[in-house]
Design a protein around this nucleic acid. Structure first.
Lengths: 212, 212
DNA sequence: TTGACTTCCCTAACGGTATTAGGTTTTCCT
DNA sequence: AGGAAAACCTAATACCGTTAGGGAAGTCAA
C-alpha cells in the first residue's frame, strides 16, 4: 500500500495502476458494472487501449483488482466502526457495525455488486482478492462470539448457521434496496431502514434462553 | 399466449419469437446473463444476426420480453402452489408458497438475476413487462392478509413494511445462495435451507399478541 | 392467374469492443 | 554514457450490436 522506499519508476507505475482503477470505478458508477469499457478508460487517461495491457493482463484482472480493493475497503470500514464505537453494550455494538457495513455497501454499490452478486460473466475472484472478504467474515464471527460470551445470545448465534442467517438478512435488505430504490438515503430507504428490526429478530431468535 | 385462430403467418412468426427467447435463455444459462450475444442466438437458429431485427427492435427488447416471461412464469408457479396446496393451516400454506417461490428462483437463476438484480446496463423493464410482478406482490399481500384474518399474525404483517420485510429476507437467502453456492440443491443449500427458520422469525416478530 | 403487398432473410457496412503483435521512444539504474 | 527495461504507440484480428438496402418467397385481391 505504501509507496515509500520504492523505485521511482515502480512508484509511478503503482500510481498509474491506482489511476486506472479509480477511472474504472467512476465509469462503472456512471454506466453500470458490466458496461465497463477498457477503451473508455484509456480515453479518459489519454492513452490508447492496448497500453492498458502494460498494467493489467486482461479486463478480468481489472475486475479482480477492484474486487480485492472493495473487500479491503469494506473490511476497514467495518473494523474502524467497531473500534471507534463508544459503548459497553455488546448488542448496540453489533447494530453499529452492521449499520456501518450496510452503509458502506449502499455508498459503494458498484463494489457491492461486484463483490456480492458476481454477475460479470466469466469473472471468478482470485484467492488473493477473496482473502480480505474472509477476514470480514471472521470479524463478524468474532462480534457474534463476543456477544454470546457476554451472555446476550445463545451460543448457536455464532455458529455457521447463525452467520449465514445474519449475512443473508443483511444481504437481502441491501440487494432489495439497491435493486429497487438505489438513490434513497440510508434513513429513508424502504428496505434498509428495516436493519434494526431485522437485527431484533435475530436477537429474538437466538435469545440466550432458546430451547428452555 | 394461445396460437389458435390466428393468421398462418402470424402463428409462424410467434413461434419464431418464442424460439429466439428459448435460445437466448439457454445461452444465458451457459455463458451468463450479461454475455448474451445476438450473433450467437442467430447462429443457433441458422440465421444471420440482422434477421433477428425482424422480431425484436433491439437486444434490450429481448431482455424485456424475457423479463416479462420470467415474471409470468414465477407468478404462475406461485399461484399454482397456493391452489394445489392441501392444508387448512394458513401458516403452513405460507411456507408452501414461499418455498415454491424460492424453488423457482433457484431453478431459474437466469430469470431471477434479470428480474431481481437488474444488472444489465441500460435495461429498464417496460410497464407491460413489470405488470405480472405487481400481480405476484398482490398475491403475497393476499396470503399475508389471509393469515392475519385467520388470527395467526398481527395486522402489521400485511402492511407495506411487513411485505418489504418478508421479500427482503427471501431475497437475501436466494441471492446469497445463487452468489455463493449456485449449484447446491434446494435441501442442501447452506442459505436456502434456512427458509423455514426465517419464516419462523417473521411469524415470531408479527405474532398476534405483539405489543401486548 | 396475375399483380401488388408484405414478410423473411440476406449481404454489406459502420462504429464499437477486447486483445495480440511488433516497433519506437522515453526513462532510469548502473 | 551505455544498456536495459518500461511505457506507449500503430496495425491488425476477431468479435459485437445495429442500420441500410435488396432479393426471394408467401399471401391476398382482382
Amino acid at each position: 500500500m505504501s509507496t515509500a522506499g520504492l523505485d521511482r519508476r515502480t512508484r509511478r507505475r503503482q500510481a498509474t495502476i491506482e489511476e486506472i482503477l479509480d477511472v474504472a470505478i467512476e465509469l462503472m458508477e456512471a454506466e453500470g458494472v458490466a458496461a465497463l469499457s477498457l477503451s473508455a478508460v484509456a480515453r479518459r487517461l489519454g492513452m490508447q487501449p492496448p497500453s492498458l495491457y502494460q498494467y493489467f493482463p486482461s479486463k478480468m484482472a481489472i475486475y479482480d483488482a477492484l474486487y480485492q480493493r472493495g473487500n479491503e475497503l469494506l473490511r476497514d470500514a467495518y473494523r474502524s466502526a467497531g473500534l471507534t464505537a463508544n459503548t459497553d453494550d455488546q448488542l448496540e455494538l453489533n447494530l453499529i457495525v452492521a449499520t456501518a457495513f450496510c452503509r458502506w455497501c449502499l455508498a459503494h454499490q458498484v463494489y457491492a455488486q461486484l463483490m456480492f452478486w458476481r454477475t460479470i460473466p466469466g469473472f471468478e475472484p482470485s484467492p488473493e482478492a477473496y482473502a480480505p472478504a474472509l477476514e470480514s467474515i471472521q470479524d463478524l464471527r468474532g462480534h457474534l462470539q463476543a456477544t454470546v460470551d457476554a451472555g446476550h445470545l445463545h451460543p448457536d448465534a455464532a455458529s455457521d448457521e447463525g452467520i449465514a442467517l445474519q449475512t443473508s438478512m443483511m444481504a437481502g435488505l441491501i440487494s432489495q434496496q439497491i435493486a429497487n430504490e438505489p438513490d434513497a438515503s440510508f434513513e429513508g430507504g424502504r428496505f434498509i431502514r428495516l436493519l434494526p428490526t431485522v437485527l431484533e429478530m435475530f436477537y429474538q431468535h437466538y435469545s440466550p434462553t432458546r430451547g428452555k
